[in-house]
Simulated scan of single mutants.
Amino acid sequence: MDTINESNDLFGKCPYFTAQKVFSGKWSILIMHNLDEGPMRYGELRRKIGDITEATLTKQLRMLEKYGLIRRHVYSEIPPRVEYSLTDLGEEFRPVLEQFRIWGDKYIKSIKNKNNG
């Protein structure tokens, strides 16, 4: 993993700033959610996420790999096969993903109740 050298003085010191920086990409949470289901190839991940360009997905995957949350495994096959999976640090994000799901479900319910009420 490349050394993380962030220019802002708060990175690595303030947990909220650090988390915001690590997950700043629009698709980061969805990528983590999908990889939580198990290792996936690039194409499979792109299909599951949906409306994401190849360039954006590649950028987001590289960023999450840089921060040590996912790993990229290249199999020495022809044609080459690449798989992405969560690292141990990425797996520690599972409870956060679950809390996002719980909160998201409650929020969706409140919106539906507000629109029907």
Rank of each mutant, 00 (worst) to 15 (best):
I70L: 06
G50C: 10
M1Q: 13
P39A: 15
L69Q: 03
R46Y: 05
I31A: 04
V82R: 08
K13V: 14
L86F: 03
L61P: 02
V96H: 04
K106D: 06
M63I: 11
M40Y: 07
K112I: 09
W27K: 12
G104D: 11
L45R: 04
V82W: 06
D36H: 14
G90D: 04
I108R: 14
H73Y: 13
I70W: 06
L57F: 01
L69D: 03
E91Q: 13
G12L: 03
N116Y: 10
K48W: 03
D88S: 11
T87K: 00
V22H: 06
W103P: 01
I70G: 01
E77Y: 10
E83D: 08
D36R: 13
K112D: 05
E37A: 15
W103G: 02
S110T: 13
G38Y: 04
K26Q: 07
I29P: 03
G12T: 02
D105S: 15
E77N: 15
L61I: 10
Q99V: 06
N113Y: 13
I4E: 05
A19D: 06
M1K: 11
V22E: 02
R72H: 03
I111A: 01
M40Q: 15
I78Y: 14
I78V: 15
P79A: 07
E91P: 00
G12I: 02
E92F: 04
I29N: 04
D36V: 05
E98S: 11
L61E: 02
R72I: 10
F17R: 01
L64Q: 11
E65F: 03
E92W: 00
R101P: 00
P79I: 05
Y107W: 13
I4L: 13
K106W: 07
Y16N: 14
S85T: 04
W27I: 06
K114H: 10
N116M: 14
F11Y: 15
V22L: 09
F23R: 00
L61C: 04
P15C: 11
V96K: 01
A55M: 13
Y107N: 13
E92P: 02
L35Y: 07
E37K: 12
I70C: 03
W103Q: 13
P15D: 02
T3D: 11
R47V: 07
G50E: 14
I4G: 05
P95H: 13
F100D: 02
D36Q: 14
K109P: 00
Y42M: 09
R62K: 14
K66R: 13
N34V: 08
V82D: 10
